[in-house]
Design a protein around this nucleic acid. Structure first.
Lengths: 89, 89
DNA sequence: CAGGATGCTGGTATTACTATACCGGCACCC
DNA sequence: GGGTGCCGGTATAGTAATACCAGCATCCTG
């Protein structure tokens, strides 16, 4: 066994994370935010839509910084604690 | 351009992250911690030695949880804020 | 209303990297 | 001298990050 595929749990965690990030962006231009975070717009879009379920740690840290989302909120979302969305509003 | 290699900055960030995690583990068995975090001992060892500079977001979240390290400390280390190591002691 | 601009989406392709496993070797300590 | 634990190297499946493109809404403007 070399690297088993992502579990459904991980995939759903990625979807929750993407939804939170999209909620946090809330109007700002996708490309602008991606550039501020130092990643490509394509990558950000895929994260938001859940097609990149488990992005790199640095990617998320930079995104949280660019969007002013506390990293602990992202971690909580990932772990499944359905933290209220008010923390980012 | 498809996926440019990791920058030296990212590699050094990974090294700092690994050093912090190793410091936080501080005596506990590597294999035990890895199991608690839900990853393989090999992977944890590579993260600690800096040979996996930019692990997945979920990997770091689980590790922080297993080691009782606040996720914000890990993010700060990654960003380069040379946060004192006392936060984990 | 036509037509352009803007912004998001799904698809496909490519490359670097993650996560895992196995091995021999090197310490340290009882 | 045999555990116990860490290390470096190698190998491999699968994913992350990026790019390009055609399509489809919405909005503005002539």
């Amino acid at each position: 066994m070399v690297r088993q595929p992502l579990t459904p749990d991980q995939i759903e965690a990625g979807r929750r994370l993407g939804a939170l990030l999209r909620h946090a962006r809330a109007g700002r231009d996708l490309a602008e935010v991606a550039h501020a975070a130092g990643i490509s717009p394509e990558t950000l879009r895929k994260i938001e839509t859940g097609r990149l379920p488990s992005p790199g740690f640095g990617t998320i840290v930079c995104l949280g910084e660019a969007l002013n989302v506390p990293i602990q909120a992202l971690a909580a979302i990932w772990r499944g604690n359905d933290l209220p969305l008010e923390v980012v509003s």
